[in-house]
């Protein structure tokens, strides 16, 4: 089975994430990495590939530096990469991004994807909508936010945990699937994996290669626009007391004074 994993290169949450002058996410001046939540999708794909005959293709859409996200997935064990790079994509919203991803997935699978895996959300935009959008564009069933999954023949089954219930899902492949961080820890690249990744093929495609018009993407092709961003003022640190046997009483007094009781 050919498994496609869509991943995103994101600014490191440990760094000082911010916006650029044009109100888009600053992807140039903040160190980036493979979105942590996407590692779970890569791991799930590798497990499936290892348990049967399978090949894992990693697809990303992003600037030149996004090649690092592909590299990490190849080091973990994915077989090949596809990197869609085009200046026109800069500033795309989720819907425009899903359009590019859909065409990239089609091209990477000669028009017939079998299984497309994604993470729960990117750690920068955190909308959690692109898997659903991609399923819509590809005309495939969506089975999302799974905390466990299995493939048996041409059917996928899995479990999704919500606040009120644990739901068992079933769908016939092909399908678009997203997984949560409850799936099991992603592996670290081994030394062997890091060396092997250097020889793995990575294709670089432009919008023209995908037959996507530049006007359909970027800020022009997006239905939303950020008009301003404001750093949240740092919270003023309040009173800190050390417990000397009366910490709980003082806490309750604070709540009383703050009219929270």
């Amino acid at each position: 089975m050919n498994i496609v994993v869509c991943v995103k290169y994101v600014p490191d949450a440990q760094g000082d994430r911010t916006f650029s002058e044009d109100n888009t996410t600053d992807r140039a001046n903040v160190d980036g990495l493979l979105s942590e939540l996407d590692e779970y999708a890569v791991e799930a794909a590798l497990k499936l590939a290892e348990s049967g005959e399978g090949e894992v293709t990693v697809v990303t859409v992003g600037p030149d530096r996004a090649a690092d996200a592909i590299k990490k997935a190849l080091q973990m064990g994915a077989d090949k990469g596809v990197h869609v790079v085009d200046d026109a994509i800069h500033g795309s919203d989720a819907a425009a991004t899903s359009l590019v991803l859909a065409e990239a997935v089609r091209k990477a699978t000669d028009g017939s994807p079998e299984l497309v895996l994604m993470g729960l959300a990117s750690t920068d935009g955190t909308m959690s909508v692109v898997p659903a959008m991609l399923a819509e564009r590809l005309g495939l069933p969506q089975v999302t936010q799974l905390s466990s999954m299995e493939i048996a023949g041409s059917a996928i089954t899995g479990r999704r945990d919500s606040d009120t219930a644990s739901d068992s899902f079933e769908a016939a492949l092909p399908a678009v699937v997203s997984v949560t961080d409850q799936m099991g820890e992603p592996r670290y690249p081994s030394f062997k994996g890091i060396m092997a990744a250097k020889k793995k093929p990575v294709e670089t495609w432009s919008l023209a290669d995908l037959g996507v018009d530049a006007g359909q993407v970027g800020q022009e092709g997006s239905g939303t626009k950020v008009v301003s961003f404001t750093a949240r003022p740092p919270r003023q640190q309040g009173e800190i007391v050390t417990d000397e046997g009366d910490g709980g009483t003082k806490l309750a007094e604070f709540l009383g004074k703050a009219k929270l009781l």
Partner: peptide
């Protein structure tokens, strides 16, 4: 971040609170 903080063991502070 806090408006009020207690440096202490939650197993002592919480029951008293």
């Amino acid at each position: 971040l806090v408006d009020f903080g207690v440096v202490g063991d939650l197993f002592n502070v919480l029951p008293q609170a």
